[in-house]
Design a protein around this nucleic acid. Structure first.
Lengths: 277, 277
DNA sequence: CTCGATTGAATGGTAGTACCATTACCGAGC
DNA sequence: GCTCGGTAATGGTACTACCATTCAATCGAG
């Protein structure tokens, strides 16, 4: 009745890392499939011929990396998991947060990414997706027209629209990048919605962009995206300068929205972008 | 003589996480500056009113995140560190590795990133940087002309050229993204250099790209970048199909290199892209 | 006085035990 | 058949003891 030992005893000095590396290698080599359960901590303790603290340290590291999930209780233990983008985003966000990267740099990356994604989305998305994007943008505009917009809903819808756009590229990597940016880089976007001077124009501009995409007009869509980032940079500069400049340096694009398709909005509830009061 | 307790006792149930979060927050809020030393584990044990194992678990988590570095011995302990891009890249690489993302998707992202970076580099880099890029590309071509090229040197130079290009955008975020891509996504690039059918043309194309950038001709540079990715996709397809297609579907751009500036290469050491034997 | 070796203290690393909290499972009793 | 409670397995915490490493102060030889 010899137990099957698939691990070797750990070296002294940094036993925890050693154990973690061996288990990680076993997982990545497919010796443990996602969903499968690792031996219990006490079993591993015997296999590695070490203390339980070392095993726990290793498990903690793997948990941090998102490779395993640990459940308590009988039939609990460490279960191999798929690494989630979530964790990568957090790692990136931590990096950016500690470096205190200037907004200007992040915005530039974000804009270039948006442009790339937009081009691909125009080329590859289905008509249904494009129509959905326009409908979402219309909903966003309506939300922003309220006296006191529900900002939580606005941020959530903005987030969803961006993810939808990324998904329309038919390349999952862009969707992941977009998720990462929203976790770590997108805090600046909120300032556009928070400032009443930009709020409505931002929504209308989203709609313009969506319509450009739906029409299959890359240049139009990219123009509107450019306008979005002009506004964003201006808005941040204004916040930094302490309201020395007004938002009215920026020209406005007039626009009519037309009736909504999904929500119970009256047919005559058209929207003019001549915001103000 | 009351000690100064800046932390609160940990809650039961997930004491380790609680401690880790408190310390992490203290670091990110600037209560501990990079380079500064945290209290010893035994001190923290007293402050948090918990066992040393919990503290060690928390320290392990922070170490995993790259927020602290732990040294042994007297005057050792946990020192606050700057988070390194390195760790973010590893996190991303782990994610991609486990997901087995198809090369096609990664290449697409890589190409779009290259195009963005190239445009910015043309607009912002100094003449010296552009000249340096051209010189580096020349060196790459010369390396690739050898009978048995030093692949280690080739990969390293290719990596450096990409990083230089990213740095020329004057936006550190692009440099970080490039580093991340090289850690996790760039394994495919090597196949272009490994295959003799593409090796030399890849180098020459790098030089063409660099010259386009140096001349301030975005369209030219982007054309060559496009050619690079056409070759890469073709090369990978060829490897996948088992050599059914030949590399000669791809047209070649003839080119003369001219004398080298830095290395001791004879002046008549020009290079023609008519590779083949 | 100077330089080297020795020793001690501080600190992280490991081992081991004991106990608690949570969970799944099973059987007795209603 | 259903519910309730016991039981065992498992992770989470606490505590102790000891080892390994590092730095610095001290001691001693020259």
């Amino acid at each position: 009745m010899t137990e099957e030992f698939i691990f070797s005893p750990a070296q002294v000095g940094r036993a925890g890392e050693d154990v973690a590396l061996q288990i990680e290698a076993a997982i990545l080599n497919g010796k443990f499939q996602p969903g499968e359960r690792l031996p219990s901590e006490r079993d591993l303790q015997r296999q590695f011929h070490t203390g339980r603290g070392v095993i726990r340290e290793a498990m903690g590291a793997l948990k941090q990396k998102g490779l395993i999930e640990i459940k308590k209780g009988a039939k609990g233990g460490a279960v191999v998991k798929n690494v989630e983008m979530h964790l990568v985003s957090e790692s990136l966000a931590l990096f950016l947060k500690q470096r205190r990267v200037e907004a200007q740099y992040l915005i530039e990356v974000r804009e270039s990414m948006d442009r790339t994604i937009t081009n691909l989305a125009i080329a590859r998305a289905t008509a249904e997706e494009k129509a959905g994007l326009v409908e979402g943008a219309k909903k966003l505009v309506r939300l922003l027209q309220a006296q006191e917009p529900d900002m939580v809903a606005v941020f959530e819808l903005d987030r969803e629209l961006n993810l939808l756009l990324a998904r329309m590229t038919r390349n999952p990597v862009f969707e992941w990048i977009m998720r990462a940016m929203q976790s770590g880089l997108a805090s600046h976007d909120h300032s556009l919605y928070d400032d009443p001077a930009y709020r409505e124009r931002t929504g209308v501009n989203w709609l313009q962009t969506a319509r450009g995409i739906a029409r299959g007009e890359p240049l139009q869509a990219l123009s509107f995206i450019g306008y979005h980032y002009v506004m964003l940079r201006d808005c941040l500069a204004k916040a930094r300068m302490g309201d020395q400049t007004t938002a009215d340096d920026i020209p406005r694009y007039p626009l009519e929205i037309g009736p909504a398709a999904t929500q119970g909005v009256p047919d005559n509830g058209d929207v003019a972008a001549s915001g103000g009061k």
